[in-house]
Design a protein around this nucleic acid. Structure first.
Length: 582
DNA sequence: CTGGGGATGGGGCCC
DNA sequence: CGGGCCCCATCCCCA
């Protein structure tokens, strides 16, 4: 007995799910476009993908080999078996680019189709360069042997210049060039042993290197294992030849990958979390959810990333973030992408700058942001402070409401453009001035809050601001600190501009660590797992806090009523109940 | 329906 | 840079 249309129907369903982002568990970054897909499907289509998706939730493809338009076709092909021609190129160009991409991605069927088609039309494939590489690509070419953290892909070490030569080569030629030796050896071995050279955001800045070395992974306590390998956006399988050629994160924390626990590979990734959680509640990779929760994020998913034009960091104190680490914007600024916070991830609405969003979206976003107004001043800065941290959205076809051909959207103003070039040109028209906005106003409120908080803290424990030896005093707010570094750190909180932008949402931070932590929430990186229930957390502290749920420990006691609490913050909240007039 | 408690997420910031 | 703890906001459950 056999169901005749089973395979077809299944594929249809999967493609529909892809269109909705449902259960998508991998993000593919191509130039400035992001595509969601299912690992299983990709893995079934190509051994190259298979090796990549094994450990990565975020795959960055070599823009020398594939551009967004081509990859869209490729993805469509994978999910449908049909090849839809691109309107952006001539047929011949298109198939040539497709052939290059297919070869690169090791989609042999597609490559064969393209070859056949090209042969029929008498065209010659143009290996290696489906499109003009952007500045990012060019920079990468220059630096490809210098850094371990560049583009993911087997051709990372393939000299693109050879593909630029005018000797058109058929697929075989390309693949010959991409022989195992060239493809899979090169500098990767060196990289593998090159521990921490590119482990962090700030690395590689001057070279204009993509921030693929951004290490958003986090060491997990021994009990919780680590999700580093799975979560590090650019780590790659070490086992497969393909991955051996691709860059690895090479951060110190990557070393932890050898100690992964069962289920770690299923760590939440942004897509999975966002899409699944929005429908099914929290995602528990390792087990059933401890409790059913379904938070509604207000923001729809978008896929902003920094354009290649944002490569230059003009401020040494700023992380060079080139928009390669990408992921869905979480549901709301504090809602997060995680097991407990289901971002609505429906691709229905453009993510625009935070201020616009605040103005236009529902109350809780706004109230929250206003509550943190001192920290939100520059949230709407696609670019700012001399650092063009533009965040663009590439709208994946079929994933967004009709916007015509204007798939490239400027985050700060929401305008759409048909090409990244036009978007780039447009972005230049945003002046620095308009990006320096509202900073005042929040600080006082905050300080009032802090006073209140300190009052409450006094009830539950010592305030963090003692009056011991603190010779270093802030000239703005007269807080004092033990050492100058801390003072300097604090003084940044008074700056009008925040030096550390999130390259996904553009939000600015005063501390790099906060920004990195924030990025983790974008990417759903939750290295700290509860052994009891499998719930995962972004921070160790949260796990510690959470463990009291299981232990029943309630260390915080209300001095007024004797009520006991598992968390200090809930005690504080409780104390408010005692103190508030109502 | 409402308020309180439990639990969680994100950001700020000090150490 | 990470840990830790503060904050606020939010959701869910339950009385």
């Amino acid at each position: 007995m056999e169901l005749p249309n089973h395979a077809k129907q299944l594929l249809l369903q999967l493609n529909q799910q892809r269109a909705k982002g449902f259960l998508c568990d991998v993000i593919i970054v191509v130039e400035n476009a992001l595509f969601r897909a299912h690992k299983n499907i990709l893995a079934a289509s190509s051994i190259y993908f298979k090796s990549l998706v094994l450990h990565d939730n975020l795959i960055n493809l070599d823009t020398e080999m594939v551009n967004p338009s081509v990859f869209r076709q490729v993805l469509d092909f994978i999910y449908t078996g049909k090849l839809l021609s691109s309107s952006e190129m001539s047929n011949e160009q298109n198939f040539s680019a497709l052939l290059t991409a297919a070869s690169y991605l090791q989609l042999h069927d597609l490559a064969a189709l393209c070859k056949k088609r090209l042969k029929r039309s008498g065209g010659k494939p143009l290996p290696g360069k489906p499109s003009t590489p952007g500045p990012l690509s060019r920079l990468r070419l220059n630096n490809q042997h210098l850094s371990s953290s560049t583009t993911t892909g087997p051709n990372n070490h393939y000299p693109p210049t050879s593909s630029d030569t005018d000797q058109p080569q058929p697929d075989e030629g390309l693949r010959d060039k991409l022989s195992d030796d060239e493809m899979f050896v090169g500098s990767s071995g060196k990289n593998a042993g090159n521990g921490s050279s590119n482990g962090n955001l700030s690395s590689g800045g001057s070279a204009g290197e993509p921030d693929l070395g951004l290490d958003l992974s986090k060491k997990s306590p021994p009990s919780a294992g680590t999700a580093t390998d799975a979560l590090s956006p650019h780590s790659n399988s070490q086992e497969s030849p393909q991955s051996a050629s691709v860059s690895t994160t090479n951060s110190a924390s990557l070393d932890d990958s050898s100690a992964t626990l069962p289920g770690v590979d299923n760590c939440l990734d942004p897509v999975e979390v966002s899409s699944k959680a929005s429908e099914d509640g929290p995602l528990q990779p390792d087990g059933p959810p401890p409790q059913k929760r379904s938070r509604q994020g207000s923001r729809k998913n978008e896929w902003p990333r920094r354009e290649a034009s944002g490569l230059k960091s003009e401020d040494n104190d700023r992380p060079l973030v080139n928009g390669v680490i990408v992921g869905p914007k979480d549901g709301r600024s504090s809602g997060g992408v995680g097991a407990g916070s289901a971002s609505s991830f429906t691709s229905e609405q453009s993510y625009q700058c935070k201020d616009e969003e605040d103005a236009g979206e529902n109350g809780h976003d706004h109230s929250e942001d206003s509550a943190q107004s001192d920290g939100e001043s520059t949230g709407c800065r696609g670019n700012g402070g001399g650092h063009r941290s533009t965040n663009y959205v590439y709208r994946q076809e079929g994933f967004e409401p009709a916007l015509g051909d204007n798939l490239y959207v400027c985050i700060p103003c929401g305008k759409g453009f048909p090409s990244s070039e036009q978007l780039n040109a447009h972005v230049e028209t945003h002046t620095e001035d308009e990006l320096f906005i509202k900073e005042e106003g929040g600080t006082l409120v905050k300080e009032e809050d802090e006073e209140e908080a300190e009052d409450l803290s006094a009830t539950v424990g010592p305030s963090s601001f003692g009056s011991e030896t603190r010779p270093f005093k802030c000239t703005v707010c007269s807080k004092s600190y033990k050492d100058p570094a801390t003072l300097r750190q604090h003084e940044k909180s008074h700056w009008l501009t925040r030096p550390f932008p999130c390259n996904i949402c553009g939000k600015m931070f005063t501390q790099r660590g906060t920004m990195t932590r924030h990025m983790r929430s974008h990417l759903g990186l939750k290295p700290f797992a509860c052994e009891e229930c499998g719930m995962r957390f972004t921070r160790q502290y949260r796990l510690t806090e959470h463990m009291r749920v299981h232990s029943g420990e309630k260390p915080y006691e209300c001095q007024l009523c004797g009520g006991k609490f598992t968390q200090q913050r809930n005690l504080i909240s409780h104390l408010r109940m005692h103190t508030s007039p109502s």
